[in-house]
Amino acid sequence: MSTSQVKKVPYLLTTPGVLFFALLLGAPMVMTFLLSLHSYDFNTGIQTDWTIANYIEVLGDPYFQKIFARTFGLSLLVTVICILIGVPEAYVLSRLSSKWRSIFLLIVLGPLLISVVVRTLGWALFFGGNGVLTMISQALGFGDEPVSLMFTFTGMTIALVHVLVPFMVISVWASLQKIDPQSEDAGLSLGASKMTVLRRITLPQAMPGILSGSIIVFALTASAFATPAIIGGRRLKVVATAAYDEYLSTLNWPLGAAIAVILLLANILIIVSYNKVIERRFANIFE
């Protein structure tokens, strides 16, 4: 084979994969984007004109602004709670003997094996007006009022945290695995207490895992659909459910497409800039 032929090999080999993604991921995205540039008429449907009116409408309308604010507030809150729960969980996991570790790892990752819809419906049963939560509250004597977390921000947060905490655990766990256990011994030998070693030596080294876990959790929350749809319903819309409603209830596909495109862009923007900050901060420290 001549060198020019050799050079072509990698391209030829990746062609099937590239085509596959171009077709199944790229094409729908381009089509969604193109769709978002048409206007919509309630009598005649989608027009053939080109306009950015949909974007102006979404960005200018307080109704949509509130939905976007709610979505990112939710994402932030879920991320923070996932850090608070996932980091200690991963730390405890890394301290267990290998037998217990595999058992607990299975428990932690177990939820990922169940469909999101099934899990969320479970939460719905738990949260609902005559659900388990109400029964518990009545049994404990907090009055006969039904307690419901359905269609509340709290309910949505709890259900999403439950779904997403495993991602944080895996990511933090992976970076805890990379820590040289002798660096903790070194901390002890220099006079630090166990708590100080954890705070000053172990946690900072787990930081890359916490940060990448945060990116995953944030992105997945911002684009989550099933959980907000079931727990939040129509009363508490997030961006994904709002786009869905534009498509299927209002039938205003171009507006729905514009919402989806803005969500995508906002997500990319946030994640890329966050990643840049992390890279700059840790470039000299971790490989």
Partner: peptide
Amino acid sequence: QTYALFPH
């Protein structure tokens, strides 16, 4: 043996 410096 691995020096165990604090990388951060």
